[in-house]
Amino acid sequence: MQCPSCHSENVIKNGRIHNHKPKFACKACGRQFVENPQNRISEDKKALIDKLLLERISLAGIARVVEVSERWLQSYVNQKYKETPRKVQVKKKPKGKLVIQCDELWSFVGNKHNKQWVWLAIDQETGEIVGVFVGDRSRQGAQGLWESLPAVYRQCGVCYTDFWEAYLGVLPTQRHRAVGKETGKTSKIERFNATLRQRVSRFVRKTLSFSKKLENHIGAIWYFVHHYNETLSVAAD
């Protein structure tokens, strides 16, 4: 038995990995390894994991179903969310009258004292999510949502919101409409908020699957938003 890093033969047994395969440690360089390692995670299994991340299933549940270690799965998810684009991908819109609905969704990371508000905007006609920002519920959050919108919406969009004061001074006065729920003018974005809570486990109000890292919280939101917009495009075609 030789160390794969330094090729030293000063190797000892060092327990077992999750599937009970013996693990070894090199006393010369400290490298830990298994004999004849194999990549057990097939591309088909990764594709299945990608789909399960879009359902209301905890990472521990996915690990049990797909039969992978939670440690490997967490590393895989961390990388996937890190690589997920933080910019909306929507169909090109002609300049003209566009109508969007905006709202804020409460969430938290780590514990309920660390509130993270998810600011969202939806195209009233196409149903696409066209703006996303995660932050506090102040004017800075409203500004982040406004800046996340594609340029055509900032130039031509009429924005319907609730009466939350943070929108004032950020959205153009001549194109901002503050309305109550009874008008139905914000019903689409409110319905998407419900969808998000039902589909993504970390947004369920009483859950043990809450986010522990802000980066993954934001990545999970963007991952779902991109999938949601893609399904709308497929349905339209």
Rank of each mutant, 00 (worst) to 15 (best):
C102L: 14
L105P: 03
S107N: 02
S107E: 04
F108T: 00
G110I: 10
G110S: 03
N111G: 07
N111Y: 01
K112H: 02
K112A: 05
K115R: 13
V118H: 07
V118S: 04
A121H: 08
D123Y: 02
Q124M: 08
E125C: 05
E125F: 07
G127V: 00
E128L: 02
V132N: 03
G135V: 02
G135C: 07
G135N: 00
D136T: 00
S138P: 00
S138D: 10
R139A: 11
Q140C: 02
G144Q: 10
G144H: 10
L145F: 15
P150A: 14
P150C: 15
P150F: 14
A151N: 06
R154K: 15
R154E: 13
C156M: 14
Y160V: 00
T161V: 07
E165A: 03
E165K: 12
A166P: 03
A166H: 02
A166N: 04
L168G: 00
L168E: 08
G169C: 05
G169S: 08
L171Q: 09
L171Y: 05
T173Q: 15
R175S: 10
R175H: 07
R177C: 14
T183W: 11
K188R: 10
K188H: 03
F192E: 04
N193P: 07
T195H: 15
V200D: 12
F203T: 08
F203W: 04
V204E: 12
V204A: 09
S209T: 02
S209M: 01
F210M: 10
K212Q: 05
K212V: 01
K212L: 07
K213P: 01
